[in-house]
Nucleic acid binder design. Structure first.
Lengths: 196, 196
DNA sequence: GAACGTCAACACGACACGTGCCGTTTCCTA
DNA sequence: TAGGAAACGGCACGTGTCGTGTTGACGTTC
């Protein structure tokens, strides 16, 4: 009868060491080669401690990403929508590559076979970032740079879709110039009055 | 010094039994729970036989998919481009869902952590299908339904991107109506003269 | 009919999983 | 300030899967 652990008594030094070890091992060995045993050994922690606070390797990685990938959560707002989108999408590309050592790529792969992890990934990582995206787009609408009738869900699909499409099928990420082309097409699709 | 196996002497009945067992177990247990051992047991084959002809579980699944997913390789051509794209994209959606029991979804996940498998997935499965897509689009251009200046790589990204975006981030697949909306947007993006 | 290669079956060591137990440390409470 | 509950590191365990090795039966070929 394992009592639920008391977060107030949690060792923050262990927590930090575990997340740091996970990040190191991921960049050294690649996501797929990282094991709970190796994380525990590197962090100087007990496996029991990891399993007490996280249900799986994926959950550890999700927490790691949630802490480190704050850049992709914030959308820049220089007033130039297309330029800001380029900045944002470039940050996402950097986060996804190289696929074998990227915690995000590994987490996405693992979530495809773990419904619980998939739900956490979507609700804790993705949905808040989608909300930030929509906030930025609404500011563009308020500023008159984008039609107020643009469907933001479609805009999300058309802007981020090509990146994930190329990512999961290993078709190579777009370079800076091609990214501009994709952004221009997406904005024109949702808002024909756009003249970029 | 393992001699390379001689394909001429390969047992086709074992090959078929192994692929069939892989398909069954995948739909029964989910891709992630399928093991080489279970495939061998179900097929009445030896593990050694599987390892002789395939390097990994993913390679078995890739061959299985390549044989069964012929529908997605062929693009219909009724003369109505948007309708044909809807048919094709619906087939892709069916192939990707449900994620936990879909061999394609599992293979995509596994390839994200296995560079060799990723190359095979792209070159043997994806690239031929991209070629068929472009052939269909060129026929639309020849028939005057699509501007000859449309960039088919961008069209590919805008049409298939939203599907894979939603798939890997578990945002839910578009229904029939929303699929039409996405197709209309994508075609308008690459070819502003489209009036759908 | 002899030689060769694939086959199913079984055994094997290696490794990671997830859990249980122990003695120690830490921190809250009385 | 003393006591105790709970998290901690360390270790061992049983389980399951991996990928390989070995054996003898079978079929094909020359």
């Amino acid at each position: 009868m394992p009592n639920p652990p008391n977060p107030a008594r949690r060792s923050q030094s262990s927590r930090r060491a575990i997340l740091a070890a996970a990040a190191e091992l991921c960049s050294e060995l690649g996501y797929g080669q990282v094991t709970i045993e190796a994380i525990a050994a590197r962090a100087g922690a007990s496996k029991k401690t990891i399993y007490r606070w996280w249900p799986s390797k994926g959950a550890v990685m999700l927490e790691l990403i949630d802490e480190t990938a704050t850049i992709t959560a914030a959308h820049p707002d220089t007033g130039d929508l297309a330029a800001d989108l380029r900045t944002q999408l470039s940050a996402v590309i950097d986060l996804l590559t190289p696929a074998h050592t990227s915690p995000v790529a590994g987490l996405i792969a693992e979530a495809l076979n773990d419904p619980d992890l998939a739900r956490d990934l979507r609700d804790r990582l993705i949905k808040p970032r989608i909300a930030r995206f929509k906030e930025r787009m609404r500011r563009a609408q308020d500023a008159g740079q984008l039609s107020p009738e643009v469907d933001l869900d479609v805009a999300l699909d058309l802007l981020y879709g090509p990146l994930y499409h190329r990512f999961v099928l290993h078709l190579g990420m777009p370079d800076a110039d091609h990214l501009d082309v994709l952004i221009a097409h997406a904005l024109r699709a949702v808002d024909p009055s756009t003249n970029t």
